[in-house]
Design a protein around this nucleic acid. Structure first.
Lengths: 149, 149
DNA sequence: ATGACTGCAAAATATTTGCATATTC
DNA sequence: GAATATGCAAATATTTTGCAGTCAT
C-alpha cells in the first residue's frame, strides 16, 4: 500500500483538516507503520525530518485525528496511548512480555454501530492479552527492548 | 451477592495470597462496587476505615490480585487504570462524556482461551466507546462530576 | 489583520522505586 | 526470627495547559 504525499493531503482535506506540514508528516508516519507507535516513538522518529516538531503538536494532532476517525487511539498498554492508522475493523493482541501490540485479522461478531441498550456507540474495541508467539520461543531478548518506547 | 469477611479471606487463601488486613479491605471494596474504581477513588474511600493505607499498597496489591486472576485491570480510560472485581466474561461501555465504564451483559463470540495463531491468550477484552444513555439525555451535569476520579 | 497552528516551559496526573518500618506465620 | 507486607518520600513517565510566536489566507 503506497501512500503518496498527495494521498495523505487528500485524506486530511476530505475530513476537513488543514493539511499542514506537521500533520502530513505525522499522518505519514502513523500510516506507514504497523507498530502502533506511541507519542514518544513518533516524536523520536519525526524530529529527524521535522526538527522543531513538539510533543504538544503530536498530542493535539493525534487527538484531532482520532476525533475525526483518521486514526484510532489504543489504550491497551497501561499508562501509554498507542495509535493505529489502520481503521478497518480488526482485533489486537497485547504481549505482556514484550509489550508489542499485534494485529489480528478477526472481525467482531458483536461489532454493532449505532445504539445498544440506549448508549450511542462510536468505537468498537476487541483485544487479547497474553504472551506472543515470538516471546514463547527462546529469543525474546530482542523483543524485550521494546518494553520502553 | 453478600460477601462476608470470611468469604474474602477464603478467596485470598485459595489463591495463595496472604489475607492481610489491607488486602481484605481492598478486596472488599473492589467486590462491593460495580463502578470499576480507580486507585485514587479506592484510596479516598478506604482511608476512612484504614487511615494508614498507602497508594503504594493499593498499587502493589491490585497488581497482585490482577496477576492471580482475582480482579481484572481495565485500561479503557486513557492514562488511568480501573479495576473490575467481576471476572465472569462480559463487555464494557466507556462513555466519552462522563468517563464511566458500564457493564454490558454480552458474551464474546471470539472469546478464545488457550492459543491463537501461536500466541498464548490469558485475557479477553471487548468494549465499546461512545456516549451513554444518561449523557444523551439532558441531565449530564451530575455525571460530569465523575470525570476526575 | 484574523484566526488557526505550533512549540516551549511549567503544571498536573499517574505510576514506580528505594528503603525503613511493621506484620505475619 | 525470617520472610513478607506496608508506607513514606522521591523519582519517572505521561499528558495537559498557558501563553507567546508563526503561518496561511
Amino acid at each position: 500500500m503506497i501512500t503518496t504525499k498527495d494521498d495523505l493531503k487528500d485524506m486530511l482535506v476530505s475530513k476537513g483538516v488543514k493539511p499542514t506540514f506537521q500533520r502530513l508528516s505525522i499522518l505519514g508516519a502513523v500510516f506507514e507503520k504497523r507498530t502502533h507507535p506511541t507519542i514518544k516513538s513518533l516524536h523520536g522518529e519525526l524530529v529527524k525530518s521535522v526538527p522543531t516538531l513538539s510533543k504538544t503538536t503530536l498530542y493535539s494532532t493525534l487527538e484531532l485525528f482520532a476525533h475525526k476517525g483518521i486514526v484510532t487511539a489504543l489504550t491497551i498498554d497501561p499508562t501509554k496511548v498507542r495509535y493505529d492508522g489502520h481503521t478497518t475493523p480488526h482485533h489486537h493482541f497485547f504481549c505482556d512480555h514484550c509489550a508489542r501490540i499485534i494485529d489480528l485479522d478477526l472481525a467482531c461478531a458483536n461489532s454493532r454501530r449505532g445504539e445498544f441498550e440506549g448508549h450511542r456507540i462510536s468505537e468498537v474495541h476487541g483485544y487479547f492479552k497474553g504472551i506472543c508467539k515470538e516471546c514463547l520461543t527462546k529469543d525474546h531478548k530482542k523483543h524485550n527492548l521494546s518494553r520502553r518506547n
